[in-house]
Computed example of a mutant assay.
Amino acid sequence: MHTSHTPHKTRQFWPWAALWLFASLLLGGAAHASRIKEVAEVEGVRSNQLTGFGLVVGLDGTGDQTTQMPYTSQGITNYLKQLGITLPAAAVAQLQLKNVAAVLVTAQLPAFARPGQTIDVNVSSMGNSKSLKGGMLISTPLKGADGEVYALAQGNLIVAGAGAAAGGSKVQINHLSSGRIPSGAQVERTVPTPLLEGNSINLGLEASDFQTARRVAQAINKRFGEGSARALDGRTVKVNAPLDSDARVSFIAEMEELSLESSIPSAKVVINSRTGSIVLNGAVTLGACAIAHGNLSVSITTTPVISQPNPLSTGGQTVVAEKSNIQIRQEPGMLIQLPASTQLSDVVRALNALGATPQDLLAILQAIKAAGALNAELEVI
């Protein structure tokens, strides 16, 4: 009993110890002033998603099975046509491209990227290829949402995995159906940005908060003069900027380094129902409440029962049946009173006193919120 009891306590202690440590770091970081560049971004300065269909060649027999993946043979046929090689229909139907795999290529085109610059690309198998290790991506156009080609990708894949199979046994480390090509695409087209248009720029806050928007406008007005910035809403701040490109870049660089007065964030509890993770920020408070927590377990055991005919009977058969035994056990739940807590450390200590697992706390926190004793926004991800 002692051996099984000790690990049970350990499993309960460490999640809340980690939570308490995270909360202490969160509270400790609240004293440091943040900069504008950490809470807002200039509107229009953004990256763009690129994607394209490509082929990976040079695989060691681990490519797609073309009988089940017709777009692989169609893709290689179209590529050969571009090179001036036309295959008859009968030859296309008999293609066995075990060294070729159809893939989707994705990349992010950063802001202000110019033709000739290189970007990283990700390559993912879209067929039944066993592995992309050792393959090379042939020239693949990458298109944006408007259908225009903005980059061309090509190069050898880096696959951070390994695997082997023989005699029905298989061993695999990491993922073999996706890889990456550093600097694998070359930019061919520039995406225009509205950074130099008009006599003002807009700052978009990372999170909608009127207090933060007011503080950003106040910091800019204090440094560059009254009327330089004004908050349009809880997420947008309009800032007057110089018209000259060099002066505007210098203005934005200096503006992004301005410090903001630290503010208390809105109280929030984030719950991950899939992993049982619970994160509380420093503004969470707890009202006085009483909680009864108990466990209900249902145990079902099955025992095989063999029924044999009598020794002198004729035509009888031995029959194997199953006998099920169902037990329901409910542990007594104690009514625990939680005092009102105004600090995060007190909230963690009060919840830890329940002795509940993180999975049980998911339901307990929702019940406390429904009862009006949890002064925080509850977000389930």
Rank of each mutant, 00 (worst) to 15 (best):
A283M: 03
Q330L: 04
T303M: 06
S341W: 04
L362P: 01
V284H: 05
G294V: 07
G333A: 10
T314W: 07
E322I: 06
V348D: 00
C289P: 06
Q327N: 15
C289V: 10
A356P: 04
L338A: 03
A350L: 01
L312I: 09
R329E: 15
S345T: 13
T275V: 05
G315P: 04
P358R: 01
A288T: 06
V347T: 02
P309N: 08
T301N: 15
V320K: 09
P304T: 01
T357H: 08
T285S: 06
A363R: 11
A292M: 05
L286D: 00
Q337H: 13
G287E: 02
V348R: 01
I278Y: 01
T285G: 01
V279R: 08
G287P: 02
L361K: 07
A353G: 12
P304N: 03
R349I: 09
Q317C: 07
L361D: 08
L286P: 00
Q337R: 12
T342Y: 03
D360N: 07
G282W: 04
L286M: 02
L362D: 03
D360I: 01
V279P: 06
L354Y: 04
S273I: 06
S341T: 05
V298T: 14
S277W: 10
L335M: 11
Q317Y: 14
L361Y: 00
L338P: 05
S277R: 12
V284E: 02
V284S: 04
I328S: 08
L296V: 12
T314H: 12
Q343H: 10
I291E: 03
G355Y: 03
G287Q: 04
A363Q: 12
A340C: 01
T357M: 08
A283W: 00
N281Q: 05
N281W: 00
L361G: 00
T275I: 06
N310F: 15
L344C: 03
A290E: 10
T318S: 10
